[in-house]
Simulated assay, not measured.
Amino acid sequence: MKIQNTFKANVIWGSLGFSLAIIAALLFDTQQTISYLAAAKAFIFSQFSWFYILLSAFFLFFLLFLALGRYGDIKLGSDEEEPEFKLGSWIALLFTSGIGIGIVFLGVAEPLSHFLSPIGEYEKVRTALFFSIFHWSISAWAIYGLIALTIAYFGFRYKLPFSLRSCFYPLLKEKINGRVGDIIDILGICTTLFGVVATLGYSAIRLAAAFHSMHLLDNSPYLVPLI
């Protein structure tokens, strides 16, 4: 049986080119690039925070609608297939892959960083609790869940590629196989890549700090990148 090749050269080279451009900018002019990225982040936070919160709430209620309604009985596979893993195994897999090092580092560091912000005492506690609960509770899982559910549904039921472009099939139809689909996949790969890099960076910092506290490593600035 011939296996269909899903390799997309445009997606690979586009994602690689964008990632290398960011890395090169950080290497050659670190401070200026960081200032640009910080300004872009501040603009997004100030202008679109409301949209992010609203969208997370919509995802949550939409998933509840699917789960509790008649659509909750649709299998993510053919009608005669049975689940490959038990429910407990799926929960363990999703929890460990979704949380990762964050539960060790950011789960503690994030509320403390908000609490140390230069605002009133009541606002410190309120802000720390609000953002920590929003980032680490069911709202974040609703985002993960909807994306995973959409890719799985169109992948298993419609036999489309297991990529982000397949999520837009109801809107774009066959256009997902063209340039528009390539752009969607490039954005998906780059955001996933930088998200994973951030998690690995935090992991390296925590691991180096742990080794240093046990006097197994010197406090060298070169140890974190090596780890």
Rank of each mutant, 00 (worst) to 15 (best):
K2Y: 12
K2F: 05
T6C: 10
T6K: 08
T6S: 11
N10A: 09
F18S: 10
L20A: 12
L26N: 04
L26V: 04
F28A: 10
F28S: 12
Q32L: 15
L37K: 07
L37Y: 06
I44K: 08
F45W: 13
Q47S: 08
F48G: 03
I53K: 01
L54K: 06
A57F: 14
F62G: 09
L66D: 03
L66W: 13
G69T: 02
G69C: 08
Y71E: 08
Y71T: 06
D73W: 06
I74S: 00
K75C: 06
E84H: 11
K86W: 06
L87S: 12
G88K: 07
G88T: 05
S89C: 08
I91A: 14
I91T: 10
A92M: 11
G98N: 03
G100Y: 00
G100P: 00
I101G: 01
V104Y: 12
F105M: 08
P111H: 07
P111M: 01
S113P: 05
S113T: 13
H114D: 13
F115Y: 13
L116H: 07
I119R: 08
G120K: 02
E123M: 10
E123D: 14
R126A: 13
A128R: 08
S132W: 10
I133N: 04
I133P: 06
W136Y: 13
I138M: 09
I138E: 02
Y144H: 05
L146V: 10
F154V: 00
F162H: 15
S163V: 14
R165C: 05
R165V: 02
R165W: 04
S166F: 07
L172S: 00
L172F: 11
L172A: 02
K173G: 15
R179Q: 10
D182R: 03
D185W: 04
D185T: 12
T191V: 14
V196N: 05
V196E: 11
A204Y: 03
L207Y: 11
L207V: 13
A208G: 11
A209D: 13
F211Y: 11
H212M: 12
S213P: 12
M214G: 02
L223W: 10
V224C: 01
P225K: 07
I227G: 00
I227K: 05
